[in-house]
Design a protein around this nucleic acid. Sequence first.
DNA 1: CTAGTGATGAAAACCATTTCCATCTAGCGT
DNA 2: ACGCTAGATGGAAATGGTTTTCATCACTAG
Lengths: 148, 148
Amino acid sequence: MTSTDTTSAPGEVALLGRPTQQRATVLRALIDSEDFVSAQVLHARLIAAGNRVGLSTIYRTLTALAEAGLADTMRDSEGERHFRHRPGPDHRHYLRCRTCGRSVAVDSHLVERWAERIGATSGFTEISHTVELTGICADCTGPTAPAA
Amino acid sequence: MTSTDTTSAPGEVALLGRPTQQRATVLRALIDSEDFVSAQVLHARLIAAGNRVGLSTIYRTLTALAEAGLADTMRDSEGERHFRHRPGPDHRHYLRCRTCGRSVAVDSHLVERWAERIGATSGFTEISHTVELTGICADCTGPTAPAA
DNA sequence: CTAGTGATGAAAACCATTTCCATCTAGCGT
DNA sequence: ACGCTAGATGGAAATGGTTTTCATCACTAG
């Protein structure tokens, strides 16, 4: 996996418009990250790996991916956007470790239903919600070193 | 209430450090807003109302207010921070209208407990959460004009 | 192969937020 | 009251993520 690998991202890229090498590369990198990444970091990684991709393209692709529902987005405490590939149609909430940054998907029926109920009782319609959970994962709580 | 009114914000300002006219003014304006406002908007309002307050001071005060727990903050879809005065120690989640921008506080024990439970079952500790709900309020759903 | 439309990317534009720094001021000791 | 000093202020400049611009390039159709 040196750099250019058009065969990586199956048909998903097609959903965005014209299938190009860059888009495949970005999607591929996003999938490989297996976790939230910022456009900046993703860009840095691709460049470091020897790929030629412009930052603008990363932003465009990531935004398109999110709009197409192929990626989830979240904002960190500084307001920066982070993206994560969304395998299926569900999985929308994550719990992320404040120390190592890793994140895991969590079950959220309860919240979904709560959100719906709130909508029903408040007179609001077309409710949409964003839930962000952070904590310290087991590995980082360990007796020894936290974020060594 | 032309402009300078040091008596507006009771003792709350004192919690921030030295009680100054500007801080009282900012807190006052935040309270009067009764809803989320961005630093920029708050600044524009104060200037328009004839008050002399620097943007930096608004940011500093708002940030301090949030850190002191006297204000709740949220980020809009563009990543901008919005602040809202927090009357008591609770009330931490809001439902805001995407059309008119108004927001109402919602009951969230359920989510709080859900968050705790997720923490317990995932091995994460020190869980903290952010929940943002948006929808279209009754007034804006009306048969006639939405955001007139 | 050629044209045409969409995609790319380097650099400039944007814009909210933060930082600098010279000036001002509230609070305190005298 | 008076002057001192740490803390506060605000205009301007710096930051830094994200978006736009625009000239060039690469897919796809004909």
